[in-house]
Computed example of a mutant assay.
Amino acid sequence: MDCYTYILKCSDDTLYTGWTNDLAKRIKTHNAGRGARYTRGRLPVKLLYYEIFSTKQAAQKREAQIKKLSRREKLLLIKNS
């Protein structure tokens, strides 16, 4: 089963990073207001970037790495994908 690490752009122009094993369903969940608490007040969200991994652990590890990046570094990652 594929797992994904993703970056969303929120309506207030902030970025949110997460992981999931069903990317399309997760984006719908976020936009329905049932996703992460952070995104609930910042709807709608738009998918800007994602990476695919073969394990949950790898996706979670990458999520943690991306969350440590500055906004500028995240935008460069998105731009260079």
Rank of each mutant, 00 (worst) to 15 (best):
D2T: 10
Y4L: 04
Y4K: 06
Y4M: 05
Y6V: 02
Y6N: 01
I7Y: 06
K9H: 07
D12M: 11
T14N: 13
Y16K: 04
T17M: 09
T17F: 01
G18L: 02
T20I: 00
N21R: 12
D22S: 07
A24S: 11
A24E: 10
I27M: 01
K28S: 09
H30R: 03
N31Q: 09
N31L: 05
G33L: 01
G33T: 02
G35V: 00
G35Y: 03
R37Q: 15
Y38T: 12
G41L: 11
R42M: 06
P44D: 06
P44I: 00
V45P: 03
K46R: 08
L48T: 07
Y50Q: 12
Y50E: 13
E51Y: 07
E51C: 08
I52G: 01
F53G: 03
S54T: 15
T55V: 11
T55C: 10
T55D: 09
K56E: 12
A58I: 12
A59W: 10
R62A: 03
E63S: 04
A64F: 15
A64L: 14
I66F: 04
K67Q: 07
K67M: 06
S70C: 11
R71W: 05
E73L: 10
K74S: 08
L75H: 13
K79N: 10
N80C: 14
S81G: 11
